[in-house]
Design a protein around this nucleic acid. Structure first.
Lengths: 166, 166
DNA sequence: CAGTTCGTTCAGCATCTACTGAACGCCGAC
DNA sequence: GTCGGCGTTCAGTAGATGCTGAACGAACTG
């Protein structure tokens, strides 16, 4: 039920591609995209599978990753045995956080590098310090403060649009 | 010549893994890591292949990507026919810029979405607006100003360390 | 000229992973 | 009880891609 139209399907696919460049499975983006624009914002696994023309198997596995990533939440629907999912608000903030967390191996590599390159190689140490600086900088710029700024920005947008509609 | 020691090799591998999480080929990180700490900062393709235990073929193809990404530059060495490469300063700034550029398909997807979801579906439109807001926010926060802040930050770090050494 | 030393290219391989189909277990309806 | 609908799991597949080896071309040496 509620199959996407041709252009809705294109939108879904674009979001899928976008998620792919973010380093996740394309199907994650498809689900996310469809949940954004679908007539019913709450969908079961079978509904998603039907709408996206994918197997229930892949929806089932991928939606768990979405749930783990806090992009989607399972909501109870009284009287239904189906698992209904909908978008979680603040999903993009979680994406921001997740991307920052990915930098950790890099930080550790730089620290490790400094332990093995002696003072007799100042040029090499300088490059390692620069990498450390980069992570310091990014850690501050993309840190909690950054995420809070986004949440504030998002709230302002919501309020502004709500004002325009009323 | 100039094979990496065991721990240098571990560092190289860690940077390789880090690059992998950034969505590039691991070999890119290996080359970049080795150029960071190698005794001679300028290396030819055959030297890199020998040091990393990889084929010249893969070094040749990957280093062109590094060159394209402005992370590495080819430097002339008088009297040598070999192609010598070294790290470019400001490489991380280019990585920042490249990551921002990747958001473009997402922006376009959100715009497209707004053209196909009518005013009769305010909830869906709201989610699309939120995505637009997200890109607006990220575009500002990660924009040119952001990269300039990094470059300033990096310069300060360099100067500070230079002062300490003297 | 032949021989050597480079880097490049291309076909092939190995690996990984997103996705599917089928079997299964669970649970409510009847 | 049996049946049907639902989500999960697992083996298998298809597609992508990082990497190699070998053949090649270009440029210098003798």
């Amino acid at each position: 039920m509620a199959e996407p139209t041709r252009s809705e399907r294109e939108f879904v696919e674009r979001i899928g591609m976008f998620f792919e460049t973010l380093g996740t499975a394309r199907m994650m983006g498809r689900i996310y995209g469809w949940l954004m624009i679908a007539p019913q914002p709450r969908q079961s696994i079978t509904e998603l599978a039907a709408a996206l023309g994918a197997s229930k198997a892949s929806i089932s596995t991928v939606i768990r990753q979405l749930e783990l990533g806090q992009l989607v939440e399972r909501v109870p629907v009284p009287g239904s045995r189906q698992h209904h999912y909908q978008l979680r608000s603040g999903g993009w903030a979680h994406i921001l956080r997740a991307r920052v967390a990915r930098l950790r191996p890099g930080i550790e590599a730089a620290q490790f590098g400094l332990t093995i390159v002696g003072d007799d190689r100042p040029g090499q140490r300088e490059r390692l310090y620069e990498l450390m600086d980069f992570f310091d900088f990014v850690g501050v710029e993309y840190g909690e403060e950054h995420v809070r700024r986004w949440e504030e920005y998002a709230k302002q947008g919501r309020d502004r649009r709500a004002g325009e509609r009323s």
